[in-house]
C-alpha cells in the first residue's frame, strides 16, 4: 500500500530548545552596543565611520570567502558582523579606512575562514586582526597620537601609557569612577566600563558566554595587578585601575569568551581565564607593549586544546 501523505522523518530528538548560532551572535552584538554607542557619542562621526566600515567590510570578506570556497553563505548567522563590530571597537576613532579594511580581512579571512569558518578558528578572529595590525603599524595604535585632534573634558592621555611611563603618581585623575564612566581615551568601544559590564552581565545571565571565563579573567587581572602593586606601589598601578582601563572589560566579556577559541570544561575555563588575566598584566607591567590584552588572549588561545584535555571522567568509564 502506498501512503499518499508525506510525513517528516528524521532522527530523535524531535524537540529542540530553540537556541541557534544566529541568536547567540545577535545577542552578543546587542550586548556590545551600549559601549559602542558611547564611543560614537564621544568620538562622533569619525568613530561611526570606522565602526560602519569595520562591520560592513567584515561581512563582505565573509561573503567573498563563502563564494570563493563555494560553501553556503553564512552572513545570516551574524558572526562576521560581530567580528567586525568587535574589531572596530578596538580601534582608535581616527583609524584610516585602509587600516580598517586590512584588519577585517585578517580577522575574517586569516582568523576564521582559512580554518574552515565558524567554530574552526583557533584564535579570536578580531584579536588576530588587531594583533597583526598592531605589529605592522604600531603607530596607528598609539592612542595618544591617534586621538591628538580630539577635544575632551578630561585627561587625554591613554591611561595605560601614563601608568607605564610615568608611574602611579600621575594616575590621580583616573579614579575608578572616571574610568568606568568612560572618561578616558582608548578604542572606540573599550572605554565605557559600565556599558561593557552591563552587556557582560546580560550575556552571562542569558547563557551566551561562559561566566567562568569572564570571572576568572577579571580575577587573574586583579590578583596579578595587586601583587605588582604591593611589591612596588610607585611603579605599578593598582588592581582597580587595570580592571577598568585598556581592553580589560571588553576582553573579559566579549573577546576572551569567544566560543571556538576558549575551553568548555570547568577547570580549563578557570585556568584559561586566569591565564589571560595574568599575562595581560605581565605584558602591561613588564612587557614592551602598553596594552597586552590582545597578545595575552592569543597566547592562551593556543593553550586551549591542551587545557580542554583536563576533563571530568565520563560516567562508567573504565580506566
Amino acid at each position: 500500500m502506498f501512503e499518499q501523505k508525506k510525513f517528516i522523518v528524521s532522527h530523535a530528538p524531535f524537540w529542540h530548545n530553540g537556541s541557534s548560532v544566529a541568536e547567540r551572535n545577535y545577542n552578543i552584538i546587542v550586548a556590545a552596543l551600549p559601549a559602542a554607542l558611547f564611543g560614537l557619542t564621544q568620538y562622533g562621526a569619525q568613530a561611526l565611520a570606522v565602526l560602519c566600515l569595520s562591520v560592513s567590510s567584515a561581512m563582505i570578506w565573509e561573503l567573498i570567502a563563502n563564494r570563493a570556497t563555494k560553501r553556503p553563505e553564512t552572513l545570516g548567522d551574524g558572526n562576521a558582523a560581530l567580528i567586525g563590530l568587535l574589531f572596530g571597537m578596538l580601534l582608535p576613532a581616527a583609524s584610516p579606512w585602509w587600516l580598517v579594511i586590512t584588519g577585517t580581512f585578517v580577522a575574517v579571512i586569516v582568523g576564521k575562514q582559512i580554518f574552515g569558518g565558524i567554530g574552526g578558528n583557533p584564535f579570536n578572529p578580531a584579536l588576530i586582526g588587531y594583533g597583526i595590525l598592531l605589529i605592522s603599524w604600531p603607530n596607528r595604535f598609539d592612542f595618544n597620537a591617534a586621538l591628538v585632534n580630539f577635544e575632551f573634558g578630561f585627561d587625554t592621555a591613554f591611561p595605560l601609557w601614563v601608568a607605564k611611563y610615568f608611574g602611579t603618581a600621575e594616575l590621580d585623575t583616573f579614579t575608578a569612577w572616571n574610568l568606568l564612566s568612560g572618561q578616558q581615551i582608548g578604542g572606540i568601544g573599550s572605554t565605557f566600563g559600565l556599558g561593557l559590564i552591563a552587556g557582560g552581565i546580560y550575556l552571562i545571565v542569558r547563557g551566551f558566554i561562559r561566566w567562568e571565563i569572564s570571572l576568572s579573567y577579571l580575577a587573574g587581572i586583579f590578583v596579578t595587578a595587586f601583587l605588582f602593586n604591593i611589591a612596588n606601589p610607585d611603579q605599578y598601578a593598582g588592581p582597580f585601575f587595570h580592571m577598568f582601563t585598556g581592553f580589560t572589560l571588553l576582553a573579559a566579556f566579549f573577546l576572551a569568551t569567544d566560543d571556538a577559541s576558549s575551553p568548555v570544561n570547568f577547570i580549563p575555563m578557570l585556568i584559561y581565564g586566569a591565564g589571560c588575566g595574568m599575562l595581560t598584566i605581565l605584558i602591561r607591567n613588564i612587557g614592551v607593549y602598553v596594552e597586552g590584552t590582545a597578545f595575552a588572549i592569543i597566547v592562551m588561545n593556543c593553550a586551549n586544546p591542551l587545557l580542554d584535555r583536563i576533563r571530568p571522567k565520563a560516567v562508567g568509564k573504565v580506566v
Binding site: 517528516i8 524531535f14 567554530g119 574552526g120
Partner: peptide
C-alpha cells in the same frame, strides 16, 4: 504527533564549541 509548524530541523553547521552539550550531558561525555 507533531505539527508541521513545530517540526524542528537539523542543520549542517559545524560545532561552534559552545559547550552546551557537555554541560547538559548526564554522563559527562565530551
Amino acid at each position: 504527533v507533531q505539527d508541521s509548524q513545530a517540526v524542528s530541523f537539523v542543520s549542517d553547521y559545524p560545532c561552534i564549541n559552545c559547550g552546551e552539550c557537555i554541560r547538559i550531558c548526564p554522563t559527562k561525555v565530551q
